[in-house]
């Protein structure tokens, strides 16, 4: 089962399913690394709004994906961390550190627009 990735101009919107396997996460990382380069993607939105548990592994992998995307020349934003998940993460001692976060998709796209100087190609 592949993780759904939607393309919106020069932005990719990745919707992570509620229970995603380690293998799928790593495959996603590879796939994004490729597509960002090939398609000239400027921004990647990682939507975790249906993810109910972000443990240390998942968090590390998300940060890894964000880093990979940045190394390939795009910006990443994590969107939709649920209140309970945010609470659980800080209790665990996890942060997303250098990865920007946004409350919802609209804010994420606004953020990417500002960060890339309108380069996401959303045409607003």
């Amino acid at each position: 089962m592949t993780v759904p990735v939607l393309r919106l101009g020069r932005t990719l919107i990745v919707t992570l399913p509620s229970a995603v396997s380690d293998t799928e996460m790593l495959e996603l990382q590879d796939r994004l690394a490729e597509e960002v380069g090939e398609l000239g993607i400027r921004g990647v939105v990682l939507d975790v709004s249906v993810v109910d548990v972000l443990d240390s592994f998942a968090t590390r992998t998300l940060r890894g994906i964000a880093q990979t995307v940045r190394l390939r020349g795009a910006r990443a934003v994590i969107v939709g961390v649920r209140p309970e998940v945010a609470f659980s993460m800080v209790r665990l001692g996890l942060t997303l550190e250098d990865v920007p976060t946004a409350l919802d998709l609209e804010e994420a796209l606004d953020h990417l627009d500002r960060a890339t100087g309108g380069g996401t190609g959303r045409g607003r």
Partner: peptide, 17 residues
């Protein structure tokens, strides 16, 4: 509570991993 359920699930995830 819904928060506690997530705490439990996350703890189990950490320990099982």
């Amino acid at each position: 509570s819904s928060t506690d359920l997530i705490l439990v699930a996350t703890a189990i995830s950490e320990l099982a991993r």
